[in-house]
């Protein structure tokens, strides 16, 4: 895929672990995922409301969820999780494409939405990506999903393509 990227890299991104108090007063910890995180992620996605699915993910049902998590946690990818105690409540992932760029997606469970977790989780995942030397990140979002697009733009993503159902947005983390 040929996408354009902004010229200037983002700066001032946090790196995990990050602890903060969300908009509803809960203490949330954001950490990089380890192999032991698969089960809490399966739990999180089993609780996921189908109205918040995006372009077919997360899939529904335990087996499809496990298969999908296998894909997004392969060696070259980067996964960051937001925790409320021992419950995974948010998950951001950066998955390598064939092009040396990374595709980003993020999900926050319904009970913890609209509390600032998504923004913090995204910034932290991008910060970790930056410190691991990832330069280019892209995502696709349904073009009617205005709240998500607003969050991505606030963080620094730019719209690069509106020719299809999905809007492509890109951000630069490092110069090349």
């Amino acid at each position: 895929m040929t996408l354009r990227y902004p010229d200037e890299p983002l700066d001032d991104l946090p790196a995990p672990p990050v602890t903060f108090t969300d908009g509803d007063g809960r203490s949330i910890e954001i950490k990089q995922a380890t192999d032991e995180c698969i089960e809490p992620l399966v739990e999180m996605y089993l609780k996921f409301d189908s109205q918040d699915r995006a372009q077919g993910i997360p899939p529904s049902g335990e087996e499809p969820i496990r298969k999908w998590l296998n894909i997004v946690t392969e060696d070259k990818s980067l996964n960051v999780i937001a925790w409320d105690g021992d419950e995974a409540v948010g998950h951001a992932m950066l998955v390598a494409d064939d092009d040396g760029s990374y595709e980003l997606a993020i999900f926050v469970i319904q009970s913890h939405q609209n509390a600032g977790i998504g923004t913090e989780l995204l910034r932290t995942a991008l910060g970790e990506g930056q410190s691991q030397g990832i330069n280019r990140v892209w995502l696709s979002v349904e073009r009617w999903n205005k709240p998500a697009i607003a969050v991505y733009e606030k963080i620094g993503f730019e719209r690069m393509d509106d020719t299809s159902f999905e809007r492509q947005m890109t951000v630069r983390l490092g110069a090349e």
Binding site: Q55, I57, I71, E103, T163, S164, E166
Partner: peptide, 12 residues
């Protein structure tokens, strides 16, 4: 088409 992380994209 599936993107690298599994999202469905509809072509033009």
């Amino acid at each position: 088409q599936r993107s690298p992380l599994g999202k469905i994209n509809l072509s033009n």
